[in-house]
Design a protein around this nucleic acid. Structure first.
Lengths: 219, 219
DNA sequence: CTATCTTCCTGACTATGTCAGGTAAAACGA
DNA sequence: TCGTTTTACCTGACATAGTCAGGAAGATAG
C-alpha cells in the first residue's frame, strides 16, 4: 500500500508543478495583454515576466496561439462561473423581468470588468487564431448557459434569444469602446432589458415591479 | 497667365501622381487585410502587392500606423457616403418608423459588407493605433450623421440614441462574429427597429404600416 | 541644359516567433 | 544511496517583420 501511495503522489508532484507553471504563464499573459493589448503580447516579455527565456515557454506551450487558447478557455470558464450565480443574486425571485435584468447586469459586468478578455472571447482580434475543440466546447457551454438563463426569464424562441444576445453585446461593446470604465451604457441596462422583454414576451412584463438590480462585481 | 497655368499644372502632376500612389497603397492594404486579418498586414506583403520594396512604402507613409490611419479615415468617409442616402431610400416617406428601419438596414449592410473595415472602425484591434485628429474628425462627422438620422426618426434623447447605437452595433457584431455572410441577425433588423422605437418613442409607432425595407448594398 | 525633387533601390538594424541542441536539476526506481 | 530518466531551463540560431540610412536613376522645374 505504502509503495503505491508513493508512486501516485510523486507522479502527481510533477504534474502539479507543471500545471502550476502553465497557470503562472497564463496569468502573466493576462497581465501583459492588459498592458499592451491582446495582439501586443510577446513571448520574450512573457518569459521575462515569469523569470525564464521566451524559448523556455515553449516547453510548456506549443505556440503563442496555444497560450491564447488557454486564455480563451479560461475566459469562458470565468464566464461560466460568473454567470452561474444569476439565480442566487435574484434572491430566488420567480419574476422573469427581474431575472433578465439581473442576468443582463451580470453579463455586462463580466464583459466590462476585463475588456481585453472580452476582446479575446467575442472578437476576432488575432489573425489565424482558432480555439481548440476543447476550448470551443467551454465556449459552447457558456452559450448554452446564457440560453438557459434567457429561458428562465421567459425567452425561449431562438430569434428572441438572438435579439437578446445582440442587445447585451451591443451595450457592452459600446461601453467598452466609447466609455471605458464609465457608466454611459451601464445606465441603460435595465431599460434595455425591459425593452427586450416587451418585444419578445410582453405578457411577462405586466404588473412587474422593478427591484434593485445591482449585482456584485466579482464571481 | 500662361506661365502661371504651367506652374500650377506641373505641381499638380506631381501631387496627383503621389496621391494616386498613396491611394493604390491603401487599396492594396484593404485587399491584404481582408485576406490576412487586420493585424496580419505586413509592409513587405504590401510593397510586393504594389510592386515595390517595403522600405519604399515609407516614402509615402510615415509608418504602418499611418496606413491604418488612412484606412480608418477612408472607412469613415465610406460610412458617410453610404449613410447619406437614407432619406432618398425611404422614398421621401415621413414615417419615423420606416426611417429608422431603413437606416438600421443601411448601417447593418455597411458594417457586414466588409467585416475587417468594421473591425478597424469600431474595435480596438491594433495595439497602439490611435487615429489622427484629421481622421477622428471624420469619425465624429459620421457619428453626428447617425444622430441626425436618429433624430429624423424621432429619436432625439441622448440615452435613446445610445440605446439605438447599442442595438445596431449589437446586431451587426453578432452577425459578423457568429454568422459571417449569413442572415441570422439580419432577419431581426426590422424587429429590432420596432422594438427600439416602442421603447423610446412609442407614439411614433401608432398605426404604422411596415413597408418593404430592403435597401441597396452599394452606396 | 542644369539643378532640384521624387521614386525607387540596397543594406542594415532591432524586435519577434520559434526551432535545435545541450546541461543541470529534479524526480523516480531499485 | 546511487544510477537512470525526465524535466526545466539555457544558448545559439534562423526567418520574418517594422523601420532607418544612404544613394542612384528618373521626373520635373527653371
Amino acid at each position: 500500500m505504502s509503495g503505491k501511495t508513493n508512486a501516485v503522489s510523486v507522479l502527481d508532484r510533477r504534474a502539479t508543478r507543471r500545471a502550476a507553471s502553465r497557470a503562472e504563464i497564463v496569468e502573466a499573459a493576462w497581465l501583459l495583454v492588459r498592458e499592451q493589448g491582446l495582439a501586443g503580447l510577446s513571448m520574450r516579455d512573457l518569459g521575462d515576466r515569469v523569470g525564464m527565456r521566451a524559448q523556455s515557454v515553449y516547453s510548456y506551450f506549443d505556440s503563442k496561439d496555444d497560450i491564447y487558447d488557454a486564455m480563451f478557455r479560461q475566459g469562458y470558464e470565468e464566464q461560466l462561473a460568473w454567470m452561474a450565480d444569476d439565480e442566487g443574486a435574484a434572491g430566488g425571485s420567480e419574476d422573469p423581468a427581474t431575472r433578465l435584468r439581473v442576468m443582463a447586469h451580470r453579463f455586462f459586468a463580466f464583459c466590462t470588468s476585463d475588456p481585453v478578455r472580452y476582446q479575446l472571447l467575442f472578437q476576432r482580434t488575432i489573425p489565424g487564431f482558432e480555439p481548440s475543440s476543447a476550448s470551443y466546447a467551454v465556449a459552447l457551454a457558456a452559450l448554452e448557459q446564457m440560453h438557459a438563463g434567457f429561458a428562465r426569464a421567459g425567452i425561449t424562441d431562438p430569434d428572441a434569444a438572438d435579439l437578446a444576445t445582440a442587445v447585451l453585446t451591443g451595450l457592452t461593446s459600446q461601453q467598452i469602446a466609447n466609455d471605458p470604465g464609465g457608466m454611459r451604457w451601464e445606465r441603460l441596462v435595465d431599460r434595455a432589458g425591459t425593452m427586450l422583454l416587451r418585444e419578445v414576451a410582453p405578457h411577462l412584463l405586466a404588473k412587474t415591479r422593478k427591484p434593485t438590480t445591482r449585482v456584485r462585481r466579482t464571481p
